[in-house]
Structures are given as C-alpha cells and as structure tokens.
C-alpha cells in the first residue's frame, strides 16, 4: 500500500474523520448527513488545492512513491501480448532494465525500460532502479533488433541514476551509456521515451534520445537528483528541497524549456491512486504517437531527431 507523504497528512486525517463519522452514524443510527457533506466538501477542497499547488520537491517525492505503475505494469497494460527478453549476451541479465517484444493493437513493438521494485524486496532485486552496464547493453541489443525488424521502440524511464558501484565502473558504465546515446541518435526506426517517475542523469538519458519525449505530470527529469545536487552545491544533501526548486526539473518546466513534447496527466494525487487509469492514458499516448511517427519517412524522422537535439541549450555568441 502506498503511504502518504508529509504534505498529504492533512488529507489523510480528514479522510479518517469522515470514515469515523460514517461508522458513528451507522452504529448509532443517526442522520448527520449535513455534517458529513461539509466534511466531504472540505476534503475535496483540500485535496484539490494540495495537488494543484505542488512544489517541485513534493513532485519529486510523488515521483518516487511505491505503488506507481512500473515499466512491467505499463507493458502489461499496453501490449496485447508480450515476450520479455533477457541478457546482454556479454555478461549478465540486469533485472533493472527490462525489455522485450510484443503487439499493441495488433502491431509489433519493442519496449525497454527501467524497472523498480513494487515492494522493498523486489526493489532490492531491481537495485532500486539503478542499472548496471549490462542493463544498458541489453537495451542496445534490443534496439538493434527492433531496427532490424522495423519495430518502433518505446522506452520507459524511471531511475534515480545509473548504478555507481565498483563493478559497474569495471564493466564500463560510461561506455555502455555512451554507446546507447550514439545508437539512439541514428536508430532507423521511430522511438518514444516516457519518463514515468524519476529521470535521473545519464542513467535516464541512456534510454532517452528519441523522436518524442513525454513525461508524466509528477515525474522529474534532470542532470542529477536534487539531494545530490545539494550535496555538491551546498555540501548538504538535506537541502534537496531547495535544489529541486531551482533545478527546473518538473514536467511543466521541461515542456516550457522545449525538452519534452508533452505531459501526460496523472490521476489526482499521482499514478498510484489509479494505476489502471494511468496505464490507459499512457497506452493512448503511445498508440497515437506511433501512428503519427509511422507516417513520417525514416530519413525525415532522423533529420528531425538531429535538429531537435542539435538545438538544445542556450548560449551567447559574440562576433
């Protein structure tokens, strides 16, 4: 069960009061519907204003909530059938990046994404969404396979960052991510990426050079997690909330900056409140976008992909 965050506590308290009142009414056969309606109205107001005025840090917290649909949940909800494929053919199968092939509305597709756990036990097995080089190399293999058979690729991004362990360094975390960037830049098939939760650093970008990029409403995407940014900038990782505010990392920020092509609305309070509705929205977006991209000749698509990334970033030029 998802637990509420600090800023959601007043909502939970009010919900508790309403439940109490209901059971009190039932037990005692009293009609307090006027009272109840008032409380329910207050709850609606409070819920609405809480989620309509989220700070960047609150969004970061929501993006990390357990209970949000994971990549495998999206796959299950989007594909009519799906075959998960394993291994990088060099070293291992990284459970943190999952991928495979399937059919969506009868059309073939390759899906690759970071996989977080749905509980603590699974999270440990999935390394909390922090992939190893073999995960990126599995992704590379599946991308090339998709290109060979002309299947579009949909990437789901949800990682705090690539794994920063010794073994990852020994096996070439850098080059594994770098080679994916090079591959995605020229992959001759339509590609979409969707940031479903956390878009942390190069570990996110390693699945993220695509023709279209979308973000869920409460997702974040930046160069580094806000706590780590705070640790570097101000030598204090507890200043994560402050860093989140200045980093411009929310979906609305990225849309504004021209990095993402669209924001996918979440159920109020987050995807974990109504996973089914969330998966359905993502399915609709994927289908509409793949239909659109498939109509564009591949060389045009690649030229557009080049120019999109070519133009990212602002600088000054004096003659």
């Amino acid at each position: 069960m998802p637990t509420e965050l600090d800023f959601e506590k007043p909502i939970a308290e009010l919900q508790g009061k309403i439940a109490e009142l209901k059971s009190f009414m039932e037990k005692n056969g009293l009609d307090l519907h006027g009272e109840l309606r008032k409380l329910e109205e207050r709850l609606e107001e409070l819920t609405e204003s809480t989620y309509a005025n989220l700070t960047a840090w609150q969004r970061v917290q929501l993006a990390r909530q357990i209970g949000r649909p994971t990549t495998l949940d999206y796959i299950k909800g989007i594909c009519d059938e799906f075959l998960e494929l394993h291994g990088d053919r060099h070293f291992a199968d990284d459970p943190t990046i999952v991928g495979g092939i399937g059919l969506v509305a009868g059309h073939p597709i390759t899906v690759i994404g970071h996989q977080k756990g749905r509980d603590t036990k699974e999270n440990i097995r999935r390394n909390f969404g922090m992939a190893n080089p073999e995960g990126y190399r599995k992704a590379l293999r599946l991308m090339r396979q998709a290109e060979k058979f002309g299947r579009p690729v949909v990437f789901f991004i949800d990682t705090p960052g690539a794994y920063a362990g010794m073994s990852a360094e020994e096996r070439g975390q850098s080059v594994a991510i770098a080679e994916n960037l090079l591959e995605m830049a020229g992959l001759r098939t339509p590609t979409i990426s969707i940031v479903t939760g956390e878009g942390g650093s190069g570990g996110a970008l390693g699945l993220g050079i695509t023709d279209r990029i979308f973000m869920l409403d409460y997702a974040w995407y930046s160069v580094i997690a806000p706590e780590s940014a705070a640790a570097i900038l101000w030598k204090d990782s507890k200043l994560g909330p402050k860093a989140a505010e200045v980093m411009r990392l929310t979906a609305a920020d990225l849309l504004d900056l021209g990095i993402v092509d669209g924001v996918i609305a979440e159920p109020r309070g987050g995807a974990q409140k109504d996973p089914k509705a969330m998966v359905q929205s993502v399915r609709d977006k994927v289908m509409a976008t793949l239909r659109e991209l498939s109509q564009i000749p591949i060389d045009e698509l690649l030229a557009a992909r080049y120019h999109k990334y070519r133009d990212m970033g602002e600088y000054i030029e004096r003659q």
Binding site: L182, V223, M247, Y309, R310, M312
Partner: peptide
Amino acid sequence: ARMQEAILSLMQMAKTSVAL
C-alpha cells in the same frame, strides 16, 4: 554536466552524441 544548467546540460550529452 554543469549543474547550473540542469536538464539543459544533461541534454548536451545528447546533442554531442547526435553530432558524433
């Protein structure tokens, strides 16, 4: 990547990669 440019600096990895 330069932290002060946040996502825009991350995207310089993408930008140089498409050029490469």
